[in-house]
């Protein structure tokens, strides 16, 4: 591993100042489950590594604030997956967090880190999109709330500005009842990177939100307000055109070795239909 300068700011202001000063030469270190691999294989060669884990404002915490559940940037997947409020209000996020890597990985990897890497295959991204989550960023110009859907650009690229640091992920507590589920395809049952990752949520006013990843440069959110998908009595023929519109933006890379585009697109449809059924069932079960 090449050497670098290591900084361990204690306050958010310090971290922002460091980020502003070093720009792209700096990398933030949260859980390290992605960054340390890149430091070792040389695909990341930052001059400065800024460890954010001592920043008071980022310390692991999940709390409610003004109708939102706020998950601090230092919160790891294990705690997201096991948190009672997450499981109750955002079960698909808990499901997604619970399948990110192994126990060892989930004990280090943060939800914010998963979002900031902006991997198209990020397992938590679809559920965050379905739940209308926002990224809270602190920067030289103050605090911004960026809807997750406006945050992802492509793998490794987000709409964060220079000097901005993500402090939390916020999820609006649902005003309406919703049934939701996270599903994925992998090459084995043990932990693996997803070749399709998908979340479907159906709410009590028959709006269906479907988000998916690993089939294009960034995760995608699609919304059906026609009520057709949410209707348990709707026929497959009625649903098909809606699904097709929803999946029209999927464009899996032919370069991937994990699955062919053909298979991914087929599985997107299989998972979409299965997830919809489960979401409807869960809504019905309350």
């Amino acid at each position: 591993m090449h050497t670098f300068a290591y900084a361990r700011p204690a306050t958010l202001a310090e971290a922002v100042a460091l980020l502003e000063a070093h720009g792209p030469a700096a990398r933030l270190l949260a859980g390290g489950t992605d960054l340390v691999i890149r430091l070792r294989d040389g695909t990341a060669r930052p001059a400065v590594v800024i460890d954010v884990k001592q920043i008071a404002e980022l310390r692991p915490a999940i709390h409610e604030d003004g109708g939102r559940l706020v998950i601090s940037a230092g919160t790891v997947m294990t705690d997201v997956a096991s948190d009672e409020r997450v499981r109750r209000s955002f079960p698909a996020l808990a499901e997604a967090a619970a399948v990110v890597g192994s126990v060892q990985i989930r004990n280090r990897a943060t939800l914010a880190g998963n979002v900031c890497n902006a991997s198209p295959a990020a397992d938590t991204a679809p559920s965050l999109l379905v739940y209308d989550a926002a990224v809270v960023a602190e920067g030289p110009d103050g605090t911004r709330r960026i809807p997750v859907d406006d945050f992802f650009v492509r793998s490794g690229v987000t709409t964060l500005a220079r000097g901005e640091i993500v402090t939390a992920i916020e999820l609006p507590l649902p005003a309406r009842k919703m049934g939701a589920v996270h599903m994925r395809r992998t090459r084995r049952r043990g932990h693996d990177l997803a070749s399709v990752t998908l979340c479907c949520g159906v709410d009590e006013v028959e709006v269906t939100r479907l988000a998916y990843g690993s089939v294009g440069p960034r995760p995608v959110l699609m919304i059906d307000e026609s009520g057709v998908l949410a209707d348990p009595a709707a026929t497959d023929e009625a649903k098909a055109p809606i699904f097709e519109r929803m999946f029209a933006d999927a464009s899996p890379s032919p370069r991937s070795m994990r699955a062919s585009p053909e298979y991914r697109l087929a599985m997107l449809r299989v998972l979409g239909a299965r997830a919809l059924r489960t979401a409807i069932d869960r809504l019905a079960q309350g």
Binding site: R187, R189, G190, M257
Partner: peptide, 16 residues
């Protein structure tokens, strides 16, 4: 070889 290493060369785990 594209899948050098443990990330993209999969062997059975306890769940497989």
């Amino acid at each position: 070889i594209r899948n050098l290493g443990a990330i993209d060369y999969r062997i059975p785990t306890s769940m497989d």
